[in-house]
Amino acid sequence: MAHDAREDTVHVEFTLNGKVVSVEAQPADRLLDTIRYGLALPGTKEGCGEGECGSCTVLLDGLPANSCLVPTYQVRGRTVETVESLSEEDVAPLLRTGATQCGACTPGVVMTATWIRRHPEVLEAQGIRALMAGNLCRCTGYDGIVEGVEALVARETGG
């Protein structure tokens, strides 16, 4: 059924971190705000509000996306994963390489890194530095992040 959302709300049901959730969203709501304020998962950060810094990266149907550029109504029936879905074990290699300093870019970095870990075949076409370029970091100079992703992938592939 086609939906006509006027000034009223849109009923949005989607899978968030493995659980089905539903929210009543305004047409203008961004996924970032819905997650942070509506669903009280503040791990996902806003850095620039224009899809440049990647701090708000979530996995949308398994692919990294800037949640500041996703209208909430567009995730009806889809799958969203945020940093809150991960465990200590998932991120441990990133700690050992110094991938986080101030932590503001980190949740976005971790989500892109998680995507690469799950799809190491993407590294056949592009390097880690190119794939991570959508996650700006002002603290680490990137070495800690790049080495962390290498360690994550190595653990996954037994390399």
Partner: peptide, 11 residues
């Protein structure tokens, strides 16, 4: 591959 980042490319 040069339009924004992979996050933009996915959307």
């Amino acid at each position: 591959g040069q339009v924004g980042s992979i996050q933009i490319q996915a959307r």
